[in-house]
């Protein structure tokens, strides 16, 4: 079922903007700190709504290449984890390294794109 505008992303954006501009100035101390945390959490949700579909598709395709067969994204990740644990990737082949690095950088693009080491890997200055 197609919902009317605003989209989920636009609603989250509206709530975040309200909290930031209307509520934050009225708070102090621990509560203000926790609101800052909450606003950051909504930022994570916004970025996930925007980026996760594309990131997941690419991750899925890399996992199929790495493991040599198809399957659900979650079950392929379980299989990769089990095989790393069993020592199948002890020689750290370049395609594994490239897959893990891309996956982690994509997670950070959603969770915390201001993380200093992330910016360094993306070739930007903190």
């Amino acid at each position: 079922m197609s919902q009317d505008r605003p989209t989920a992303a636009e609603l989250v954006d509206a709530v975040r903007e309200f909290l930031d501009t209307q509520v934050m100035p009225k708070l102090e101390g621990h509560t203000a700190f926790h609101l800052r945390v909450a606003i950051n959490a909504l930022g994570i949700v916004e970025r996930e709504l925007a980026f996760a579909p594309g990131f997941d598709r690419h991750e899925h395709s890399r996992l199929q290449g790495l493991l040599g067969h198809d399957g659900e994204l979650d079950s392929l990740n379980h299989e990769l984890s089990s095989r790393i644990r069993a020592g199948d990737f002890d020689d750290q082949p370049p395609e594994l390294a490239q897959h893990l690095m891309t996956t982690v950088l994509d997670k950070l693009a959603i969770a915390n794109p201001r993380y200093a080491l992330y910016l360094r890997h993306r070739g930007q200055k903190a």
Partner: peptide
């Protein structure tokens, strides 16, 4: 939200 910081450590590890 600290749960979403685990990937910071994943990047540090890589």
């Amino acid at each position: 939200t600290i749960g979403r910081r685990a990937c910071e450590n994943e990047l540090d590890l890589l």
